[in-house]
Amino acid sequence: MASIVVLVSVLLIDLIAFGLAVAAEQRRSKATVTPDSAKEYDYCIYDSDVSTGYGVGALLLLAAAQVVVMLASKCFCCGRGLKPGGSRACALLLFLFAWLTFLIAEACLLAGSIRNAYHTRYRGVFGGEPLSCETVRKGVFAAGAAFTFFTAILSEFYYLSYSKSRDAAGGAPYGGSNIGMAPYS
């Protein structure tokens, strides 16, 4: 039977990660071009860097939830054998799709956080060329939030399918060895 503690803790961690990713999208940095006091050059002033922290927090929490699920299921390939059938096939597909959505979510959150941090920490351009105050594109953190949500759903269903197949395997031949060697000694 699937562990309720694992299911609830992973769901809670994933929901917090989703909330942080949404907050990062809403609070992403915006820039304004401002001339210096002598009006010799323009430079960019970026507002708060809080979305970088939200993005990194979402990234770390999503990774933590993925680690919990993989440890609880022994990463699908280690541990007891699973009973062949629909639950094992479903668990395998969900495992692959959960990892795919996890990697996409992590990439979006990492890229958004790095881009946001870069543009809020380095200000000022000197010279006569037009100034471009680049910021994180709208939707980068939102994509990370969406894939965080998909990862949460797929991970939960993966763990349930894995547990169902593991429990159905029971003892030998899938769950362990019942070969006794004592009488042949």
Score class of each variant (00 low, 15 high):
137 R>M: 10
141 F>W: 09
135 T>S: 03
161 S>L: 05
150 F>Q: 00
146 A>Y: 05
160 L>C: 06
165 S>A: 15
141 F>L: 09
140 V>N: 00
133 C>L: 04
146 A>V: 06
155 S>I: 01
145 A>R: 15
152 A>Y: 04
154 L>C: 15
140 V>Q: 03
140 V>K: 02
133 C>V: 02
138 K>W: 13
167 D>Y: 10
134 E>M: 08
150 F>N: 00
144 G>L: 02
143 A>T: 00
147 F>L: 08
137 R>H: 12
141 F>C: 07
164 K>W: 15
166 R>E: 09
142 A>G: 05
138 K>D: 11
147 F>C: 12
154 L>I: 13
147 F>N: 06
135 T>Q: 00
148 T>D: 13
166 R>F: 10
151 T>K: 06
164 K>A: 15
165 S>Q: 10
153 I>F: 14
136 V>K: 04
158 Y>H: 02
162 Y>L: 13
151 T>I: 05
167 D>W: 12
158 Y>E: 04
149 F>Q: 09
141 F>T: 07
133 C>R: 03
144 G>A: 06
154 L>Y: 15
166 R>K: 14
157 F>D: 11
146 A>E: 01
154 L>A: 13
143 A>I: 00
136 V>P: 00
156 E>V: 13
139 G>D: 14
151 T>D: 05
153 I>D: 12
166 R>C: 10
138 K>V: 09
154 L>R: 11
151 T>W: 06
142 A>H: 06
135 T>V: 00
